[in-house]
């Protein structure tokens, strides 16, 4: 029980990620697939941000920074690096989503549907 509680963020990130992963693989609707992708990437972001957490620490903005005399205690501030990385990952996931939606919009214009099986039917008919 102790073991389960000590890592609970990580158990939940896997749960969320697998929901997204399943949607990505199995959903028939292209927009739902993209929703799955977004959930998957959000889970990765949750995972990284969890790495950055530190018990008893605050946000990584150094207080009274410009006095520069006092000693800075690194255990008082959370790890900034995962947050930086995730800022990048968020931007990447938004960009991918934008391009994917553009593709879906073109697919809809061409086939008149965004259901994968209906598109495949149209493709095999030709």
């Amino acid at each position: 029980m102790e073991f389960l509680l000590a890592k609970y963020n990580y158990w939940f990130y896997i749960l969320i990620m697998m929901v997204g992963f399943y949607a990505m693989i199995s959903k028939n609707n292209l927009v739902k697939k993209m929703i799955g992708v977004s959930i998957f990437q959000a889970a990765i972001i949750l995972f990284y941000v969890s790495i950055g957490a530190k018990r008893g620490a605050t946000i990584p903005i150094i207080e009274h920074g410009h006095d520069a005399v006092h000693h800075i205690d690194p255990t008082a501030y959370i790890n900034p690096l995962p947050h930086v990385l995730m800022l990048t990952a968020i931007v990447v996931s938004v960009s991918t989503l934008g391009v994917a939606l553009a593709l879906i919009s073109k697919i809809y214009a061409k086939y008149g549907t965004i259901e994968e099986d209906e598109i495949n039917e149209q493709l095999t008919d030709v």
Partner: peptide, 14 residues
Amino acid sequence: LTESIEETAVPNVV
């Protein structure tokens, strides 16, 4: 965390 201010003069480490 410790060097950010000394090296870049930015208190927000992120």
